[in-house]
Amino acid sequence: MKIITYPEDILKQSCDPVTKFDQEFQDFVAELESFMRSQPGGIGIAAPQVGRMQRLCIVDLTGMTRGKKKKPVPNQGRLILVNPEITKWEGFELGREGCMSVPDYTGNVIRATRIELTAFDEFGNSHNYESEGYEARAIQHEADHLDGLLFLDRLVSRKTDLFKRKQK
């Protein structure tokens, strides 16, 4: 397994829904998860990033920290998201993103701060999720891959200032 990098065309294509939750698919999910965890950062990956054009992404922010004080990031652990559909978006927040498929570049992207979604797991069981903050950002980033969207499609100017101002 290897990461496909832009400008490879398939990263800009929509993926097909998963219809077979068979052993072959479950083996692929396990392999993708293992591959994700072997990558630097390793908090999320989408199937098209390794060339499989199916609507599957994995997010796991377990153990992830933010900032110099290494504050834990609230998260729900391992999320296998098959045919995910984000059904509700609330709030917006500017944050910096990069992507394994776009090496050596990071940029500012606006994402919803809180989302609701439905998805199947690798066995075909349906789940409803609510997510916020960094985990919600990761889910939105990975789900975008399934529609052929990269964070490059959502870049905003480095001068965009949506940050709440406060006086010292």
């Binding site: 900032g67 910096r96 993103e97 990069g98 950002r137």
Partner: peptide
């Protein structure tokens, strides 16, 4: 002057 410092966390997906 008023100032504000915030940390930038970069998500690599």
């Amino acid at each position: 002057v008023n100032f504000r410092i915030e940390e930038i966390d970069t998500l690599i997906g």
